[in-house]
Design a protein around this nucleic acid. Structure first.
Length: 425
DNA sequence: TCTGGGGTCCTAGGACCC
DNA sequence: TCTGGGGTCCTAGGACCC
């Protein structure tokens, strides 16, 4: 039995989320900005039609957006994350095997669905829309890469009405020939440029290229992509990455930061965030990296960027230990006289909390279990009452360096005081 | 004034070993 | 003429993803 992958992808996800509680915005152009209101990271179909490009810096197109009556939102991850998990919960009902690939995408195993899967996919699509308000597109193919291509086709061709099955297509090669090679999953800007210079323009051209050439120029990753286009699945269900191998928290500042006191707050803040992620996946960290950088888009200003690493032994999940390491790294890295734009904290060398490696001289677990309990209590409070209800003094109270978010919509679904109110007139 | 944040995997090359 | 030949492990950097 050949396998059948479905890729379900939410249409203009962040923009669609903003629309769920704002019916007045239906059919209106919407864009959503990145953290710090830096650039455009999501556009509704109407905004795309206006020629607004992905990643465009906001300050460069602000006037154009205003002239065209585009609704502009800062990122509201509390809202997007919640709607995402609602969508995924619905999808679970449609396949025994679901892999959440990103906040707005999931792969489903539809291998054993009677009737070829397309009918099933239509029901899925209608259910998600009805239950969550989010429109999705579904692409089906015998490999993940082909499902991705089918998904794109489903989005582009109105006659597909949001669902396309490449396996039932009378002309699959025609579909591949419409797909620019630069848009194939796994082929980025660099490789696309080289391929185009070599006369390879479509997914079909790439599929039929000499495999030795592909292996030599693009490594095994490129070869896998090519095999997937030929219908040979290289990315199955078994090699799924369960827990992360590193966790990171970082952000640009809302304004340039020069004082070490403010940087210490920011580094402490990121340490707390990253440590929460660490504990959420039940890991301990054996290394901490801190980095900081000035604004590389300000070529006149003096530039400085640096990063430092410290090993943590024994590996830990205890915020005070991680804070100590991160802050002393910062003191080592900090230089006077620069305007810093961004900093971050990364934990690496992650191990599972249970059954981790200890050396002969390590303090055994009974000491650390006190740490684990304290952290569990902390995470419990913050999980129940909201992030930052309880936090370490080191991450500051004023936080004058935080990002800008001037156009964020209410967190309709996750904060009591921001629930939508229905009025009868 | 103003340009995101968070990940993964692969490869090449150096250090080191016998 | 010819200066061993494999291994392993680690790291930095490249390329990619959303």
């Amino acid at each position: 039995m050949t396998s059948l992958f479905a890729l379900v992808d939410c249409n203009s996800f962040y923009a669609s989320c903003e629309r769920v509680f704002r019916p007045d915005l239906r059919a209106k152009p919407i864009v959503v900005l990145s953290n710090n209101d830096g650039c455009i990271i999501a556009r509704s179909a109407e905004a795309k039609a206006l020629g607004i490009s992905m990643g465009a810096p906001y300050f460069k197109c602000r006037d154009m957006l205003r002239r065209n009556g585009v609704a502009v939102f800062s990122s509201n991850y509390a809202l997007y994350g919640d709607l995402s998990s609602r969508v995924m919960n619905v999808l679970e009902r449609f396949s025994p095997r679901l892999e959440v690939y990103s906040i707005d995408e999931a792969f489903l195993d539809l291998s054993n669905v009677p009737g070829g899967g397309a009918h099933h996919a239509r029901r899925l699509r209608a259910t998600v829309l009805r239950w969550t308000g989010i429109p999705v597109s579904v692409g089906l193919g015998r490999t993940r890469t082909l499902a991705k291509i089918a998904n794109r086709f489903a989005k582009q061709q109105p006659q597909c009405r949001g669902v396309f099955n490449l396996e039932c297509s009378p002309k699959p090669e025609l579909v591949l020939s419409f797909m620019p090679v630069r848009d194939v999953w796994g082929i980025g800007r660099r490789h696309a440029r080289r391929l185009e210079a070599h006369g390879v323009h479509s997914a079909l051209d790439f599929r039929d290229l000499d495999s030795n050439w592909v292996k030599r120029r693009m490594g095994v990753t490129g070869l896998h992509t090519q095999l997937e286009l030929r219908g040979i699945s290289c990315f199955g269900w078994d090699h799924r990455p369960g827990v992360r191998k590193s966790v990171l928290s970082s952000r640009s500042f809302g304004r340039p930061v020069e004082r070490v006191a403010e940087l210490r707050e920011a580094v402490a803040y990121h340490t707390e965030r990253a440590a929460e992620k660490l504990r959420r996946q039940k890991s301990v960290a054996s290394g901490v990296t801190v980095f900081l950088e000035t604004n590389r888009f300000a070529p006149g200003a003096p530039q400085y960027s640096n990063s430092g690493f410290t090993a943590i032994h024994p590996a830990s999940l205890h915020t005070p230990i991680l804070l100590g390491a991160a802050l002393s790294l910062l003191d080592r890295l900090f230089r006077e006289g620069y305007q810093f734009k961004k900093c971050g904290v990364m934990f690496s060398g992650l191990e599972q909390e249970r059954g981790r490696w200890l050396s002969l001289f390590d303090t055994p677990d009974e000491v650390h279990s006190g740490h684990a309990q304290l952290m569990q209590t902390l995470d419990g409070i913050n999980g129940r009452w909201g992030r930052d209800t309880v936090h370490f003094a080191a991450s500051g109270l004023q936080r004058t360096w935080t990002m800008r978010q001037e156009m964020r919509s209410p967190r309709y679904t996750s904060v009591w005081s921001e629930l939508p109110v229905a009025k009868a007139e």
